[in-house]
């Protein structure tokens, strides 16, 4: 059922040329060089420290590694990080699904 729904969504976003983050409930991550990360459409902040920030989204987690990380601004579905960015990793929920 959900798989079918997923396929329909993908198809609609392709067909109507809609931004995929809106249709698919995926986070949109914008980085400015390696100093700022702007994350929209996330569902939760899981962990945050100077070196690592983990964010929950619909189908998994995003892990951002860096140095001297700090949250410049945090709203309901938006997050602006600043610091020295090293990597952005996606950890999809393979078990949950």
């Amino acid at each position: 059922m959900s798989k079918w729904q997923q396929q329909i969504r993908t198809w609609i976003s392709r067909y109507f040329d809609l931004p995929s983050d809106v249709m698919l409930d995926l986070p949109r991550i914008t980085t400015i060089g390696s100093i700022h990360v702007y994350i929209e459409n996330h569902t939760g902040l899981l962990h945050f420290s100077d070196e690592e920030v983990r964010i929950q989204y619909k189908k998994g987690q995003v892990r951002i590694l860096g140095k001297d990380l700090g949250v410049k601004m945090m709203l309901k579905e938006e997050l602006l990080l600043e610091g020295e960015l090293k990597s952005v990793e996606f950890l999809p929920d393979s078990k949950g699904g």
Binding site: G44, L45, G70, V71, K72, M73, M74, L75
Partner: peptide, 27 residues
């Protein structure tokens, strides 16, 4: 983190958050 998440869900606007310790955050 869950606390902050709950706060932002209720409409809070959190800025300039810094972690000082494992269980200590200034915002």
């Amino acid at each position: 983190e869950p606390f902050l998440q709950a706060c932002t869900k209720r409409g809070c606007q959190i800025t300039n958050m810094r972690r000082l310790d494992d269980s200590l955050v200034i915002l």
